[in-house]
Design a protein around this nucleic acid. Sequence first.
RNA 1: GCUAAGGUGGCAGAGUCCGGCCGAACGCGGCGGCCUGCAGAGCCGCAUAUCGCCGGUUCAAAUCCGGCCCUUAGCUCCA
Length: 493
Amino acid sequence: MTLSVTNTISGEREAFEPVTDETVLLYVCGLTVSDDAHLGHARVWTHADVMHRWLEHVGYTVTHVENFTDVNEKIAARAGEPGLGETEEAVAQHFTASVIADMRGLNLKRASVYPRVSEHIPEIISLIERLIDGGHAYESNGSVYFDVTTYAEYGKLSNQKLEHLESQGDPDERSEKRNPSDFALWKAGGVSPEAIQEHAKHDHGDDVPCGQTWDSPWGEGRPGWHIECSAMSMTHLGETIDIHVGGHDLVFPHHENEIAQSEAATGNQFANYWLHTGLLETKGEKMSSSLGNFFTVSEALSEFGPNVIRSFYLSTEYSSKQTYSVDAMTEAETRWERLSRAYENGVAALDSVTAQTKAADESLRSAVETTRTEFTAAMNDDFNVREAMAALLSLTSAVNSHVDSGGPHDYKALKDAIETIETYAEDVFGFQFTTPSDGDVSLASDLAALVLEIRTQERDAGNYDRADDLRDSLTSIGIEVQDSDDGPTFRLP
RNA sequence: GCUAAGGUGGCAGAGUCCGGCCGAACGCGGCGGCCUGCAGAGCCGCAUAUCGCCGGUUCAAAUCCGGCCCUUAGCUCCA
């Protein structure tokens, strides 16, 4: 059973074969740091994270590069806003820090490198020079454009034909271009005041900043949007990479242009597999910064926590669009609870028996096998996380049944089940089960246990009203109480 | 207009590439039972699907082919 993925460029599912046997070169199209990240961004990160984790699980070493676009007119437009700093760099640093904090909060595996555009200007310039030397780009009024007619396969990713495309770029740069679809590799001068005003979220007055500029063979200027990814990808991963991941809204023009400029420059295939994640929608339209209908990652983290957010994302395949709603989050929370409760029940049962226990529970044993087989098949089938999650959840029923039966436990089967859940839920899906050894958690556990002891005394004395009051009080601060034959148990929030 | 993805039960969402195991997964919600002092959790079970519409191919179609309708996205910055 090997991995197959749906490649946007062919539109078909293809067997995955990396350039080298051992390593997977993964590039994730990162964020423009002009605002706080929202749940749409985190969806891409999370799916890319699970892909990364699965590739490692099946034995590859993953070199994961995820860029930050820290040079952009929208960033420059926000300079001077309270708390963001006076320069484009300061604004970019502010939001980069907040995005990294979000990523930490979501328990994403760290990328190998997080390259910034501002740190790759020399590489960008030399790539542009290479394109000019090869006859694929031309200078015009201090700006440099890519000539789309020099790359015969232009449009192969998005299936667009040049004659059907409208002009790319700002109206004022069209007169400088040879063809309407040519796109800027380098833009002369700073950010235009019009662009600043268009993206500004506050009034800059007369003191309009113009963003950073760099010296180049064509004069002072700034890199175009698309060239950065090509330059950073090549710098850190080489001319041909295995997987390029990004949101579906980037297929055209961004990824199309990346392919054109990269392959025109090197003559080599830029990325072997293009994987695009479906967009997150709310109320029938996509969540986006420009529409202002977004829910930021940090808000979501404080309201739901990382596990519930993951549970939400993993209820749909990466390639499908997904709708955000309060109901969807509630269901995601319930699904996560189901998984974590079963895990905790299983662990508690396992801790209560010894390895010498011989009772055999064939149904649990076969459930473990089925889960392993089905989970693996699902993940290898284009990272079908919904199917994989279904396999994992079906194991929760088996574990709960086994624990509920109360009879002698099957130590080996239970241990296998717990390890299977840990491997898939934590290592592959990136969930984090609560561990009682955490300092605060440990103290809270002790306190909750103390209260429950008092409640048990009240119950034994028949003071049910008093006992229920104590239970309600615990519930109100998020501690769930559950009575069972073996006495009360509780779960911390 | 051009391009791409999608339309499956109350909700959400697999299955469609490789037609039969799909009398349609997993889950949420609903209903009933077990357990419980009660509740929750858990377990067991039940109900709800003309698989967008029309036609075709086939012994057999949610799955293949053709036409149509609708939704979302891209063609301007966007994950």
